[in-house]
């Protein structure tokens, strides 16, 4: 087991390095002097030679690229992404300020979506190729086809403008959460429903299910006791993988509802040209994905020993 974990850990190192290189180079792919941008962004004045020089020294922009990268990386792994270009505080503070809102939106959506996805997926699988199943499939196709920003605006139009039932935007009480969660869940749930359905269908075609059926067990029990139990592992894996959406999975929803989360932070920072924040968010979201993957893989191996020795 330990060997497996060690091997997986080693495997992710190049990926993490790759993510860091890409995030770091984001700042350096545009022509021109970052120091000038910083002066302009921070002081809103035309950069003078001495100001640019001062910033260049202060930020260490006069050092060789490799040194800068190593310095950036060594700080980034400790959660230090330097100072924002537009605001007088560390990038990490900006991110931490927005994290709770994103987390709230994500976990609510996550919980609701999973519940419904399981329900719809099971129904769909039991009644395969019947009307309910077609309905579920159409529903999930719509879920991935309808742009969330459009759906969000339509919900705002119905519930906030016409019916005046719910607030159209903002962060606060439970009533603020309803529309964004509804909007996001629609697509979130769609993908998950499809996955639950296909996992169950696969499990249903396995030998042990055929045996169970042959024993004359009622279909309900076959599906819930036998098929579902076996399909549960890939389903749980898949669900846990979506935790990596936590950081910026809901950009469009956050923008439509002015939700003060990390998604809107990303968009705002792009507009404000606050590239260290953009850089940090790209880095963190990539790393989070890798780490969640790793954790899920290891847990998977704990549950199912075949994987450990499999390759």
């Amino acid at each position: 087991m330990l060997r497996y974990i060690a091997r997986r850990l080693l495997q992710i190192v190049p990926t993490l390095l790759g993510i860091s290189i890409i995030s770091f180079s984001l700042l350096y792919i545009f022509p021109g002097d970052p120091a000038e941008f910083i002066v302009e962004a921070r002081y809103a004045v035309e950069p003078t030679q001495e100001m640019v020089k001062k910033i260049r020294m202060e930020m260490g922009l006069d050092r060789p690229m490799l040194v800068q990268y190593l310095d950036w990386l060594s700080k980034a792994v400790r959660g230090d992404f330097g100072k924002s270009w537009t605001e007088d505080k560390p990038v990490m503070d900006l991110i931490l300020e927005r994290l709770p809102a994103s987390a709230q939106l994500f976990f609510t959506t996550f919980a609701i979506s999973i519940a419904f996805a399981m329900l719809l997926g099971i129904i769909s699988a039991i009644y395969k190729d019947r009307a309910v199943d077609h309905f579920c499939r159409i529903f999930s196709l719509l879920g991935i086809s309808i742009p969330s920003f459009w759906l969000g605006l339509i919900l705002i139009w119905i519930f906030s403008v016409q019916l005046r039932l719910l607030p159209a935007f903002g962060y606060g009480g439970i009533e603020h959460l309803i529309l964004p969660v509804l909007t996001w869940s629609f697509s979130f749930m769609a993908i998950k429903t499809r996955f639950v359905r296909s996992c169950l269908l696969e499990a249903l075609s396995q030998d042990y299910v055929i045996t169970a059926r042959a024993k004359g067990l009622p279909e309900r029990i076959v599906v819930l006791r036998h098929a579902l139990r076996n399909a549960l592992i890939p389903i749980i894996t898949y669900f846990s993988l979506s935790i990596s959406h936590l950081i910026v999975g809901s950009i469009m929803v956050e923008v439509v509802f002015s939700w003060p989360g990390l998604g809107s932070l990303l968009v705002e920072s792009v507009f404000k040209r606050d590239f260290p924040v953009v850089q940090a968010l790209v880095f963190i979201s990539g790393v989070l994905f890798v780490i969640v993957n790793l954790v899920v893989d290891i847990l998977y191996a704990v549950i199912d020993p075949r994987i450990r020795y499999g390759d």
Binding site: S160, R164, P167, G170, S258
Partner: peptide, 16 residues
């Protein structure tokens, strides 16, 4: 603070 202009208008309409 409501940065987005449309959101501001909606906030007024919804009484916030």
């Amino acid at each position: 603070v409501i940065p987005d202009e449309d959101t501001r208008v909606l906030a007024l309409r919804s009484g916030e």
